[in-house]
Design a protein around this nucleic acid. Structure first.
Length: 281
DNA sequence: CATATGTCCTGAGAGC
DNA sequence: TGCTCTCAGGACATAT
């Protein structure tokens, strides 16, 4: 499930394409369903082929390949999408390929479940789709004050709110549990009840967990889906303290077992000893 | 307006 | 062994 660290790893993995010119675009064996608002493949090709890549950025959980025309190719991996320079895990789920003139010859998009997308967006469309109206500040650089502004008045449980990309961009289901455990905040606590000290701790742990996960090149879960651009596993799954560890001893306190609950139809994992409902001061 | 729920997708794994 | 069923959670649409 690519979240901020995995998408940032994808971005870094294809930085070598900056400066290269796009030779062709191909939709492969199982092309993604076009979105309703999406320009046709012909338009995509016409606007992108011949363009030089000026930058590769990340906006929230999307990889943004910027062209010198200021159009952008936006890759949204959602659950099982991968951006690859190397041979893919299998041929069956290859969706799209960009052929380049330069040291890097190809960029592939592979997606087992096909919930993701690769789109060409004009500057106005990019602003509309990924601008501040649709996406909150980036979780990697957000300040404690901004966190409190974004969430402080909400009645929602903090874990559920952290997944709202309009409030904060980049956190998904896995890292929400890990971050709250590091911050020693119970996932079901309403945002309203958190004080400024909690928001400061949450900010520090958000940065800490995400930075460390980036250093490990993301988390490859037991299904093995997530891979970096060279088709290698991430390493952060070995650092998880709560995610998918229900019933196991808490690594931090060594006195309680990790509990799984369901919030908004998603699994949440926490340690009832480290993350008390009554908030530590 | 804020918040909650339903939907899409496919393969892994459980259970019989 | 091989079938059926449930589950995983990104973002968005629709409902409350």
């Amino acid at each position: 499930m690519p979240e901020l660290p995995e998408v940032e790893t994808m971005r870094r993995g294809i930085l070598g394409i900056v400066g290269s010119r796009i030779l062709s675009l191909e939709w492969l064996r199982r092309p993604l369903k076009p979105l309703t608002s999406e320009p046709s493949r012909a338009v995509f090709r016409r606007r992108a082929i011949g363009q030089r890549i000026s930058a590769v950025d990340r906006i929230g959980k999307r990889v943004v390949i910027r062209l010198e025309s200021e159009d952008a190719i936006v890759v949204e991996p959602r659950m099982t999408g991968l951006v690859l320079l190397d041979e893919p895990p299998d041929e069956l789920h290859l969706r799209w390929r960009m052929v380049l003139a330069g040291s890097v010859k190809h960029v592939w998009y592979w997606d087992r479940r096909g919930l993701g997308s690769v789109r060409l967006l004009k500057p106005d469309d990019l602003q509309e789709a990924l601008g501040p109206g649709r996406l909150g500040p980036d979780a990697l650089t957000v300040s404690a004050e901004t966190l409190q502004e974004q969430f402080g008045a909400s009645r929602r449980a903090i874990k559920v709110a952290l997944l709202d990309q309009r409030c904060l961009a980049g956190i998904g289901n896995l890292y929400a549990s890990e971050i709250l455990h590091q911050a020693q905040i119970h996932p079901a606590v309403p945002c309203q009840r958190l004080k400024s000290g909690h928001w400061q701790r949450l900010q520090k742990c958000t940065h800490g967990v995400l930075q460390t996960a980036i250093a490990y090149e993301g988390s490859t879960l037991s299904d093995g889906t997530y891979r970096n651009a060279l088709n290698q596993s991430g390493g952060y799954q070995n650092q998880h303290r709560v995610y998918a560890r229900a019933g196991m001893d808490c690594i931090t306190c060594r006195s309680a077992k990790i509990v799984r609950i369901v919030q908004a139809q998603r699994s949440t994992f926490f340690c009832p000893q480290c993350q008390k409902k009554r908030l530590p001061k």
